[in-house]
Structures are given as structure tokens and as C-alpha cells.
């Protein structure tokens, strides 16, 4: 029998090891798997390389993981937002490494990683500082820069509903990086607002096919990051 359902976030993130590469879904707070991240803080893995679009807000979620010095390197497109305090401070002190990647290149590197394509050529960033030192090639008279795929040991993803096979649907713009991150990790761990029965998700509307998902945990009432930040909450509570 296939049953990818785990009882708690803590059990779902148990295997994450020191030095792991971890993709974390979300664009700002939308789609950020905050309970899985908090479980990872409790679990203690360190020297992580984290691939995520941003670096979190306030002192919860991804920002808390960084504040606890578990992240050695961030790969992201926009490492600051209105409420990001933790990453900017560590970065200015030289205490965390940053690989800055254009957002669409970040998405395509993840998609390629999941699709078994080791590298690709893109027009994005040609002639800019972010293409310096990278291989370029001309196709049809236009210059493109080579980018390598990204793969991870683990992906942490938030979705709206999942079944025990790992089929997923998402909520509005919280989908963002979730579907591609599910494909690009050896172990994909998902927190779902609801776990539903097999067949309850119409096969025509499944967004992430279950084959890309390894572990599912129900978090029925996920925290809202912006509310926690407004209250200046810090994890662990």
C-alpha cells in the first residue's frame, strides 16, 4: 500500500541532514511552508543551502531558520522584502553566502533540475553583472548565457489539498514555486491544508502528480506569516 501521509511536521522533516540542499516554496509569505520550516528549526539540521525566492520576514519561518544560523548559503532572486531584517544583517557581516539569480532563471534552473536537463541557455541577464564569468553562446545571431540546473536533497512545499498518493492542488498565487520544487528534490515534503481521499481531487485538476511527492502532512490551520511578523513573534515561541 502506498501511503505518503505523515502524522506531524516533526516526523516529516526527520531525515534532513547537515549540509543538505533544501528548496523552500513561497513568494513572500504566499506558499511558504512555515510549519515545516519551524519543524526543521526544532530538528536542528545545519549548514544548509536553501533555495527560495526570498529570505523571509521578521523572525519566523525562513527568517527564523536563517536567524538560528542553520543556513550557510541562500540561492534566491530577491533576498530582501519590506520586513526582512535577519538576512540583510548576516549578509552585511559576511556571515551568510548569497547566490543571486534572476527570478525566471531560478524557476527554469529548478524546472530543469526536475526534468533531467543539466543546463540550458537563456537570454536573461546577458550583458549584465549576473552573467559575468558564465559561458555564452550565439543562436540565430542572439547571445545567450548558460545556466546550470538546480537539484535539492529536500523540497519543503505548501499546498491546499493532498491525497495519500501525493497528488496536490494549490491555492491561488501560493502555487508559485511549489510544483517545480516538487520535481527537483530527492525527497519532497509537503504540508497540505487538507488531506483528502483518493479520487477527491479530480484527475483533470491535479497540479502536482503524486509521483513527485514523498511525504505529506496535514496542517489544517497554517500560521499567517504577516500576522506573526506584525506581532513581532519569534520562533521558537
Amino acid at each position: 500500500m502506498i501511503n505518503k501521509i505523515f502524522a506531524s511536521p516533526a516526523e516529516a522533516v526527520e531525515d534532513i541532514f547537515d549540509g543538505a540542499v533544501v528548496m523552500i516554496s513561497g513568494f513572500g509569505e504566499a506558499g511558504s511552508p512555515i510549519e515545516l520550516i519551524h519543524a526543521l528549526i526544532d530538528q536542528g539540521a545545519k549548514d544548509l543551502t536553501v533555495i527560495s525566492n526570498n529570505t523571509g520576514s521578521g523572525h519566523v519561518g525562513l527568517a527564523a531558520l536563517i536567524a538560528h544560523r542553520r543556513v550557510a548559503k541562500m540561492i534566491c532572486s530577491f533576498p530582501r522584502t519590506a520586513n526582512s531584517k535577519v538576512f540583510p544583517e548576516l549578509y552585511k557581516n559576511g556571515e551568510i553566502e548569497l547566490e543571486l539569480v534572476p527570478q525566471g532563471t531560478l524557476a527554469e534552473r529548478i524546472r530543469s533540475g526536475g526534468a533531467g536537463i543539466p543546463a540550458f541557455y537563456t537570454p536573461t541577464s546577458v550583458g549584465t553583472p549576473l552573467a559575468e564569468g558564465k559561458e555564452t553562446r550565439e543562436f540565430n545571431g542572439k547571445t545567450y548565457v548558460m545556466q546550470h540546473a538546480l537539484e535539492a536533497d529536500f523540497s519543503l512545499v505548501k499546498c491546499k489539498a493532498a491525497d495519500r498518493y501525493g497528488n496536490l492542488i494549490y491555492n491561488k498565487t501560493a502555487r508559485n514555486f511549489g510544483p517545480i520544487m516538487c520535481t527537483a528534490a530527492k525527497t519532497t515534503i509537503v504540508q497540505a491544508k487538507q488531506i483528502v481521499g483518493l479520487g477527491d481531487i479530480d484527475p483533470e485538476t491535479v497540479v502536482t502528480p503524486g509521483i513527485f511527492v514523498n511525504k505529506v502532512v496535514e496542517v489544517a490551520n497554517p500560521a499567517e506569516e504577516s500576522k506573526l511578523v506584525a506581532e513581532d513573534r519569534r520562533y521558537p515561541w
Binding site: 549578509y91 543571486l100 537570454p123 536573461t124
Partner: peptide, 16 residues
């Protein structure tokens, strides 16, 4: 030199 570099989707939007 003291700014945190952040690019988002700007370079992708002008690439095509």
C-alpha cells in the same frame, strides 16, 4: 557597495 543585491524578475522581463 553596502546594498543587498536583489533582482527579482526584472532581467527576465526585458530578455525576450
Amino acid at each position: 557597495p553596502d546594498a543587498i543585491p536583489a533582482v527579482g524578475g526584472a532581467m527576465d522581463l526585458v530578455a525576450g
